[in-house]
């Protein structure tokens, strides 16, 4: 479903992502675990076709990020961390509809989808109100709805819980698990061990742009002879730091 092959991204002086390869199967959550500056956002931006790989490539739903970026984009939904961005002067429905239109949905499809999403995320009260005055929680739900309006097969989450309070974090976790429920292919980047442990089927540990290990958590623990993911992480990342 999602196949990354030797992808590399260099900015002028640094190699932000260095020859990374991994695969994610349908209905699976793959966690990219790494510290700040490890290269998580850069990797996800390349998958979302926002950045062009310096070398290597990736295939999403059978489409190549370099040669068929439009096709790739119409099959992905993204939720990137930080402050949720909405168009404040548009209503919740208009915000969602815009992304539906941009992804080539018809008017009737959009209408139907919005009423469905309104039910799912319980947005009845404010679906036709302008987003500018929404609480953080309301905005978050609109952002969820927007990211899946076109029913993408692949979801990319880049540190989606950064800066959120506990309830909001739980909402995000629930949303991610719901996406898996719907058999979507998911890549989740995070620097939070517990989050990755809770949600991911398989993880890859990324450090200074290099994918230093990958597998299920059990596999990783076994390979490195440790009792917890935390210890595995320290082992791998700490080791590298000493070199």
């Amino acid at each position: 479903m999602l196949k990354v092959s030797n992808i590399t991204k260099s900015f002028e002086s640094i190699t932000a992502v260095n020859n990374i390869s991994f695969e994610v199967r349908k209905g699976e959550i793959f966690g990219l675990l790494g510290e700040n500056g490890a290269g998580k956002t850069t990797t996800l931006r390349m998958l979302a076709t926002m950045l062009k790989p310096t070398s290597g490539t990736a295939e999403l739903c059978g489409y190549d990020v370099i040669n068929e970026p439009e096709k790739v984009r119409s099959h992905i939904g993204i939720l990137f961390g930080g402050e949720t961005g909405l168009y404040d002067r548009l209503t919740a429905a208009e915000n969602i509809a815009y992304f539906g239109e941009l992804n080539d949905m018809s008017k009737s499809e959009i209408k139907e989808r919005i009423s469905q999403l309104t039910r799912i995320f319980d947005m009845d009260e404010y679906i036709n109100k302008k987003a500018g005055k929404f609480s953080k929680g309301m905005k978050q739900k609109v952002a969820f709805a927007r990211s899946i309006v076109h029913n993408p097969d692949i979801m990319l989450f880049d540190e989606p819980t950064s800066g959120l309070d506990v309830t909001a974090i739980l909402e995000v976790h629930k949303f991610i698990l719901d996406c898996r429920q719907q058999n979507k292919t998911i890549v989740l980047s995070s620097h939070i061990m517990s989050e990755v442990e809770k949600l991911c089927d398989r993880i890859g540990i990324i450090h200074k742009g290099v994918l230093v290990a990958s597998g299920t958590i059990e596999e990783l623990k076994k390979t490195y002879g440790k009792d917890s993911l935390e210890e595995v992480f320290i082992e791998l990342v700490g080791d590298r730091n000493e070199i």
């Binding site: 926002m50 984009r73 961005g85």
Partner: peptide
Amino acid sequence: TFEPLLTTK
């Protein structure tokens, strides 16, 4: 909103 916009079709 720019990044989500750029990842649409």
